[in-house]
C-alpha cells in the first residue's frame, strides 16, 4: 500500500514536471529551439505571481490569471526581439543567448528579491487532502496533474484544430516552404514562444504554491523539463506528460529509499531510458 501511495504521489509530481516540460516541448517542436533559460523563465513567472499577489493584494489564483497574459507578451517579445536573431543554421547562438538569459534572469531575481525563500500561500488548500480508500490524495498535487492534462488537451487542440496550429506544424516540417507560402515564420515563432511562456506561467503558479522557491532553483527545473521531454519522445505532448510522470514516479520511488537519492534516481532512470530507447518512448519528430 505504501508503494502504491508513493507511486501515486510520483504521478502527481509528474504533473508538475510535465507543466515544466510542455513549454520546452512546444518551442522545440515548432522551431528546434532548446531554451536553456526555460527553468529561470518559470521561476520569473513565479516571482511575477508572488509580486502581484503581494503588492496588489490579489488573490493567488487571480494573480496567476493576470500573470498569464504578461508571460505571453514576455515570450512574444523575447522571441521577436532576441531569439529570432539567434536562430539560424548554427546551433551555437541560440544556446549561448538562452544560457546568457538564464544567468541574467537568475541574478536579476537575486538582485531584486534576494536569496530568501518565498512561497505563495493559498490559504490552507495546499495542506488539504482527501481519502480514497486507504490512500491520501493532496488537493493541490491533484490540481497540478489535472492542470497538466488540461494544458496537453489545449495544446493538442491548438496544434491540430486551428489555423495557428497548422502554421506551427508547417513551420516544424519545413520553415522555408512556409515562408514561400507568404507566412512570416518569425511571427509564428513569436506566438509559439508566447504560448510556451503561458504554459510556463501555469507551471510557475504550481511551483510557487507547492514548496518554497528561491532564485537559484531555475536550472534544476530546466533539467527536469528536458528529461521529461526526452523520455516522452520529441514532438508529442502526451509523450511529454507521460515523460513527466515517469520522472516523477522515479523520483518519489528513489526518495522513499533515501531522501538524498530522489533527484539522482530521476536522472538515472532518464539515462537508462535513453540507452534503451534513444528517441524516447513516443517519438513523433525525426530529429
Amino acid at each position: 500500500m505504501i508503494l502504491i501511495d508513493t507511486i501515486l504521489q510520483g504521478v502527481m509530481l509528474g504533473g508538475l514536471y510535465a507543466l515544466f516540460a510542455l513549454g520546452l516541448s512546444l518551442t522545440f517542436g515548432v522551431m528546434r529551439l532548446v531554451n536553456l533559460a526555460h527553468g529561470d523563465l518559470i521561476l520569473l513567472g513565479s516571482y511575477i505571481i508572488l509580486t502581484l499577489a503581494g503588492s496588489l493584494y490579489l488573490p493567488p489564483l487571480i494573480a496567476a490569471l493576470v500573470a498569464l497574459p504578461i508571460m505571453f507578451v514576455l515570450g512574444w517579445a523575447l522571441q521577436r526581439f532576441l531569439l529570432n536573431h539567434a536562430l539560424h543554421d548554427d546551433i551555437l547562438p541560440p544556446l549561448i543567448v538562452t544560457f546568457g538569459l538564464s544567468i541574467l534572469i537568475q541574478n536579476g531575481l537575486l538582485a531584486i528579491f534576494t536569496a530568501d525563500s518565498r512561497r505563495l500561500s493559498l490559504g490552507g488548500i495546499e495542506a488539504q487532502s482527501f481519502a480514497v480508500g486507504p490512500l491520501n490524495i493532496g488537493v493541490l498535487p491533484l490540481m497540478t496533474l489535472l492542470a497538466a492534462v488540461l494544458v496537453v488537451l489545449l495544446l493538442n487542440f491548438v496544434f491540430f484544430k486551428t489555423a495557428l496550429g497548422r502554421a506551427f506544424r508547417a513551420t516544424s516540417d519545413d520553415a522555408t516552404t512556409l515562408t514561400l507560402m507568404g507566412r512570416d515564420t518569425r511571427r509564428v515563432f513569436a506566438i509559439a514562444t508566447g504560448i510556451a511562456l503561458v504554459v510556463a506561467g501555469v507551471a510557475a503558479f504550481f511551483l510557487a504554491t507547492r514548496a518554497s522557491i528561491n532564485p537559484s532553483i531555475g536550472p534544476a527545473r530546466l533539467i527536469f523539463a528536458f528529461e521529461a521531454v526526452i523520455i516522452g519522445g520529441l514532438g508529442s505532448f502526451w509523450g511529454t506528460l507521460i515523460g513527466g510522470i515517469i520522472l516523477g514516479v522515479a523520483q518519489t520511488l528513489g526518495g522513499s529509499i533515501d531522501p538524498e537519492f530522489q533527484v539522482l534516481a530521476g536522472h538515472l532512470v532518464f539515462i537508462a531510458i535513453l540507452f534503451l530507447r534513444p528517441r524516447g518512448l513516443f517519438p513523433r519528430a525525426f530529429d
Partner: peptide, 19 residues
C-alpha cells in the same frame, strides 16, 4: 549579481553582434 547580469548580457550581445 549585477556583475553576472552584465556578463550574461555581454555574452548575448557578443554572439549576436560579433559571432
Amino acid at each position: 549579481p549585477i556583475y553576472l547580469i552584465i556578463l550574461g548580457a555581454l555574452g548575448i550581445v557578443s554572439i549576436l553582434v560579433a559571432p
